[in-house]
Structures are given as structure tokens and as C-alpha cells.
Design a protein around this nucleic acid. Structure first.
Lengths: 199, 199
DNA sequence: CACCGCGATGTCATTGAGTGACATCACGGC
DNA sequence: GCCGTGATGTCACTCAATGACATCGCGGTG
């Protein structure tokens, strides 16, 4: 069977462009339809009109197809940190970063829900999700240290931001009514302040 | 080549007992010698005097051999929570759990160091480590809710405990002098209180 | 004592993830 | 009209992981 009927289009090069996007979409839909484990890379590649080998040229592994956006998220979050005066406390700086994350993630709650459903249904995906957050946290802590925040404070503030984000995000994505992720995060951060003051 | 010279011992049954322990030791030493990725399950099994198939009868996957102790850790941590009066604040309860974890983990710093070296050298192992902590956190949050702590507070307190533990553990395992993990954790928790009070 | 069921292990076959090496071929420049 | 390049295909391979079935010592049981 020739591939050309699927992939070849006049004047567009030898193959259809946007293989990466097609793979992303194919993967998400298949993960939703059959579940992550029941989907093979060959399935995804076929739906996207490429071979399995090509999948691995775009994504390091079967999970990464759901997470490669997070590198962009990380960059932009750290950029947001630059906008905060270096005199701000660690927690205030972190709050700004969380706000920026909320703006990026909070736009499409339906997409967030689908994604979350897939991720939560599989342990390997949950693992990957965690390490992405942790990677962001580590980068954040690093920047905080560079701007003079104490070693331990930087680590704590960064790790704490994950705590707040996870709790807030879970609340937001589950909520019946249509809240604003930024609000939920701010509220959750306030709750943490109260909590920590407890004895 | 017959296996009997290795595995058969008079009066001890058909095979040497303690295959699980042998596999654990073989795996850790090989991961230290060659690295996690450079070690195959067949290598581990061979050193332990069994077949690869047997490895997977003891451990769900190649990573789990380093983490199967954490289920015990989780049980005992939750048991420690039972000893805390239900009237205690969420953070105080969490502090008690952290103290219990510290007692279990803090005993052998050299072992902790070796383990940590292996884990930190590989992304897959870091992922697994994270999900174990998160699993503990989720269980902890669940118990807190059952004893009347508010939904959000429970989640926050549990997630925060991870933040504190990770920061403290990292400091402890890296430290030049010989500190007590419990002390480091308590100190870190205090720092968090200060941090959260900041504006 | 001979037989039996059980449990731990071995053996074999298979699927699917992931990788390296090399071939292909349209496109764009020269 | 030739050529280098980049994206893709093809092939071969290793290894993780799992299911099915065989093996065999041990501890009873009659």
C-alpha cells in the first residue's frame, strides 16, 4: 500500500507538514479512546500517517507526547520571575510564577480535563507529570538562589509552589462551576499561609 | 551448565531461600557499578543466581527493586499518625508523621547516600521516587480528612510535608557533618513557617 | 513406603518500547 | 541539470515485561 495518498500533497513537500502535531492529536485521542497502555506507538503513528520510527524522532517516548508542552511552560514561568523585583520575598516571587502558570494552563478547562483524565488513569503518566513539576521547581529554586534567596528558603518556596499548584489545580479541574484558576491558586496560597501559622 | 552448584543446599529446599533479598542486593550493587540503564534484568538475576523471570515474580519492574521498602514506610508513617490526638492541627499532625519517617530513614546515612546516588543519576528512578512520596502524601491527606481536617487543608498539609521532607532530606544526605535527620526536618519545618509568614 | 498437591522456580514464546544504521527522495540552491 | 540536505521509511536488534506450561523437592496422607 502506497503512503502517498495519505501523506503526499502537491507543492507541500514530500510529506504532509506538521507530523508532530498530528502525532500529538492522534496520541491524545487514542489514549482517551482505549487508554494509554492499550495504545501502541504503531497505532499512533498509523493514525498520524507516519511510521513508528518517526514517532520516536518527535518524542522521546510514549509518554512525552503529552508533556512536551511543559518545556515551554517552564521557560515562560521563569521569564515571569524576571518581572518580579528582586527585593520581593521568596513566597511573593513564587506567587507571581504561579499566576503566570495559571494564565497558561487555565485557558481551556475542557482540554485540561481530558488531559488530566488520561494522566490520572495511568501510573506511568502520573510519574511523568510529577517529574515535570519537579523540574520546574528545581529551575525555580535555582533562579531564586541566584537572586539572593537563601538556599533552604529557595528550595522550600519552590517545592511549596508545587504543593499549592497541585492542590489548586485539582480543585479547579474537578469543580462543578466555572472558576478561574488564578483565583483558586491565590486562594489556596492564602490557605497555606493560615495553615503554616497554626500551632 | 547446571545451577545446582549455586542454588542447591542440603536440607534447605530445592533452592536457596531469600531470592528476593539476593535480587535486591544484586540490583543495588550493579546499579552502583554500571549505572541503572547499563544493567539488564538478566544481569541482576544472574548475580542473584536465578532467572530473569524470577526477578519479575519478586518485583513489578526494574525500578521497583529500589522502592519496595516504601510500602512499609507508608504503613508505619500512617500508623504514627494514629498516635497524634485528633485535636492537633494539620501541620502538627504532619510534623509527627515526618518525625516517624525520619526515624526510619535516618538510621543509615551511608545506605541512604548510595541509594540516593543511584536514584539521582537516572530520570526514571527519580520519577518513581516522586510517585512514592506522592502516594504517601495522598494517603496522608486521606487520613487527615477522615479525622475532620478540611479538604483543602488536608491536601495542602500533606503536599507540604513532601516539600519539607525533600528539602530536608537533600540537605541531610549532602551535609558534610553528621546531623540527625529528625533535627534537620524540624528545622526545615520551622523555616517554612517563617517563610509562609512573609509578605 | 508410594502417591499427591503445592509452591517456587525454570523454560519458552511473544509483544511492544526504544535505538542505530542505512536507504530514499522531494526540495531548494547553484 | 546536478547536488546537498532534511525528513522520512526500512530493517535489524536489544531489552523490558508477561503469559503458559513444565519441573521437582517438600510436606503430608493413606
Amino acid at each position: 500500500m502506497s503512503r502517498d495518498d495519505i501523506t503526499y500533497t502537491l507543492g507541500m513537500g514530500r510529506w504532509k507538514p506538521g507530523a508532530g502535531d498530528r502525532l500529538r492529536e492522534a496520541a491524545l485521542s487514542l489514549y482517551l479512546e482505549r487508554g494509554f497502555e492499550q495504545t501502541t506507538v504503531a497505532d499512533i503513528a498509523e493514525r498520524a500517517g507516519v511510521t513508528a520510527r518517526t514517532f520516536f524522532r518527535y518524542f522521546a517516548d510514549k509518554r512525552e507526547v503529552l508533556f512536551d508542552a511543559s518545556s515551554v511552560l517552564e521557560e515562560k514561568s521563569l521569564a515571569a520571575l524576571e518581572g518580579v523585583p528582586a527585593t520581593a520575598s521568596a513566597l511573593v516571587s513564587v506567587a507571581a510564577v504561579l499566576d503566570s502558570v495559571a494564565r497558561m494552563v487555565g485557558g481551556d478547562r475542557e482540554l485540561a480535563r481530558k488531559r488530566q483524565a488520561v494522566i490520572m488513569a495511568n501510573a506511568d503518566l502520573r510519574e511523568r507529570e510529577l517529574i515535570k513539576l519537579t523540574s520546574l521547581s528545581a529551575a525555580l529554586a535555582d533562579r531564586l538562589r541566584r537572586r539572593g534567596v537563601g538556599d533552604i528558603e529557595a528550595g522550600l518556596a519552590a517545592e511549596t509552589s508545587i504543593a499549592v499548584f497541585r492542590v489548586a489545580f485539582s480543585r479547579w479541574v474537578t469543580a462543578a462551576d466555572d472558576q478561574d484558576l488564578q483565583d483558586v491558586i491565590r486562594e489556596t496560597l492564602d490557605r497555606l499561609r493560615t495553615l503554616a501559622a497554626d500551632r
